[in-house]
Design a protein around this nucleic acid. Sequence first.
DNA 1: TCTGGGGTCCTAGGACCC
DNA 2: TCTGGGGTCCTAGGACCC
Length: 453
Amino acid sequence: MNNKMSSADHLAIGEPQSGSVSNRGRSVYAIVDCDCFYCSCERLFDPSVTGKPVVVLSNNDGCIISRSDEAKSLGVRMGVPYFEAKSVIEKNGVKAFSSNYHLYGDISMRVMDTLRALVGRERVEVYSVDEAFLRLDHIDPERLESFAVEIRDTVQCWTGIPVSVGIAATKTLAKIASRLAKKEKARTGCTLLLLDEEVQRKALMETRVSGIWGIGRSYASKLIGLGITSGWELRNMPESWAHTHLGGVVGRRLIRELRGEPALTMREELDGKKMIATTRMFGRPVTALNELKEAVATYTSRAAEKLRRQQCAATEISVFIVPREENYSLDFRNAPQFTARATLSQATSLTNELIKSAMRLVEEIFSPGATYKKAGVMLGKIRPDVSIQGNFFRTDSGRSNRYLMSAVDNVNFSMRDDVVKFVGTGLDKSWKMRQELRSKRCSTRWDELKEIT
DNA sequence: TCTGGGGTCCTAGGACCC
DNA sequence: TCTGGGGTCCTAGGACCC
């Protein structure tokens, strides 16, 4: 889940569009967006909740992060704490699930593979676990509408996941199209084209600025304060104005995109993450240093696995811990946190080496007597791991350790999480997050296959 | 009592260099 | 009294995304 908007190479201002130049200079982007993805995944293997209200909870069963349409119409809001919504949920028999990322990740791959089969691998940019941009400038304009329907029906048929499709001349307009398509499902059938100028104008007029991709909470309230409330009004502002008020070049791009001039092109295949983080709330408050260390060691092994999966090594590691605040104020998210960072003498992806530094960092920031609710590990300065291909300058022990890690990764992946692990990560892990309502990982674990009786 | 996790990009400003 | 100009690199912080 990453590749947000644009990097410098997406900046197409003042340049012809590179790479994706189409026959008639026409650009056509589609966004395919899974409908309430996590809930839809849960329904795949539990048909008893089809048509019933469903929600999926964040880690630690904290917040609501996905809602079915039925749950939405009961007034269950996105992002609210579970305990606040609990009464509505129980009263209406809403089925709640803990998040099951193994399942969602696997289903996501199937959806993306379907899209690649439909338009070709090089025309698909996976934007997040439940969304992908497609480049459709090879499709005859006459056929676009039926093609959108074909995409929707094929994904539904092959994977069981309902999707919406928005099509327009730019990515930003395509996002608006899919949003409107979802909103007016009955009329649009979940596919919508914003190619005609008049249709575009109407769509932008009924889109609030807060609903535009790239306008978050802070910009939205700023815009409204300046009297700009609709997408259409924003579209008609000068680029130079956007430069000063909406974050410089980012704002300029946004205005161009809204006018139908592509300023964000397709992103190249991911070349690996620049930062890898593993952070978690605890299932209960933690005060003991050794428990804190267990947790941080566990997160470090997880982060190291991610690092090895993309065949990289890191030279920077930082650890943070968050104390439980005394008074449960509104801005609990902005709680102070204590961070320590270390630069490693040599880039590594070995769990034991990373854990060793992490432990020192925990000791640095821990204060006895304090109570903590969350901790995290971040790996930075990431670059390709050369030792795996054999680095003459690295000692043999480093290399064989790297092979050992691959073996551990293989066992843990094929068997079950953490069959093989470092003792420092703890055996009992009573601080672990709560996940009381998790469904089975029936598409990725042999021992959790769906049984039909 | 209880409030997610994991990313990206851009800008401003300081340090440093010639 | 008066004290250059411009480049690069790095970091922190702010914005955004799902």
